[in-house]
Simulated scan of single mutants.
Amino acid sequence: MVAFHRLVFMTPSLAGRLLRYMLEDEEALAAALDPGVRGRLQAAQVIAVHRVLARTNWQKIADGRTARDVHPEAVADADQAFAPLRHAAGNP
Rank of each mutant, 00 (worst) to 15 (best):
A81Q: 14
V46A: 11
L29A: 13
N91F: 05
R17N: 08
D79V: 12
G90C: 11
A28R: 09
V75Y: 00
E27P: 08
L7I: 03
V8E: 01
A89T: 10
R17D: 12
A89R: 08
T66I: 12
V37G: 09
D79S: 11
H5V: 00
D77T: 03
R38I: 06
M10C: 06
M1Q: 13
E26Q: 09
R68N: 04
V37W: 10
A28G: 09
T11P: 09
Q42C: 07
L33N: 05
P72M: 05
A74P: 00
F9P: 00
D77P: 00
W58Q: 01
N57I: 07
R6E: 15
G90W: 09
G16S: 05
G16F: 00
V46R: 11
Q45F: 13
R17E: 09
G39P: 12
D63Y: 04
L29T: 14
V8G: 03
A78T: 02
F9G: 01
A15Q: 00
L85E: 02
P35H: 02
L85Q: 04
R40I: 15
P35E: 00
A81S: 15
A32C: 04
V2F: 04
M10D: 11
I61Q: 08
A74F: 03
R65I: 01
V49C: 14
N91H: 08
V52A: 11
A67K: 05
Q42T: 14
H71M: 02
T66P: 08
H5T: 03
D25H: 11
R20M: 12
A74R: 04
G39C: 07
V37R: 13
A78P: 01
H5G: 02
L18Y: 14
L85Y: 02
V70C: 08
T11R: 10
T11Q: 13
D69G: 07
L41T: 12
P12Q: 08
M1H: 10
R40V: 14
L53M: 06
R40M: 14
R20Y: 13
